[in-house]
Amino acid sequence: MSRDEIFEKVQEVLVDALGVDDDEVTPDASLTADLGAESIDFLDIVFKLEQAFGFKIQQGELFPENVTENPEFVQDGRVTDKGLAALKQRLPHADFSKFEQNPEVTKVAEIFTVNAVVNFVDRKLQTVES
């Protein structure tokens, strides 16, 4: 499946799950800040991606859990270097370049962009196919 085809299906999933318009779902759009996703929407998105692409997503595979509750990873409201390294390891599909400049824990959800979801699906499909 080409990247454009993946994007189109991801766009459909996000339009359905978040009640947004097609043109709002751009590659750089943040699921939370731009598309208004709340915590339950992440579960909805996971379920819908599984249906759309026919693979199983393990808990925490697309969106990590309990990282920001770990005191080693967050200090004074900011994600530590160790926390950042852990996030990068668990989320190879996300782009951290913007977040790294100001790693406030309140902004951690903003790394979940449409592009990150497309990257995740792309990697996942390659794993399934290989």
Binding site: I40, L43, D44, F47, E50, Q51, Q59
Partner: peptide, 8 residues
């Protein structure tokens, strides 16, 4: 769909 986190 149902898992440990919830259900649809």
């Amino acid at each position: 769909r149902m898992d440990d986190m919830g259900a649809a």
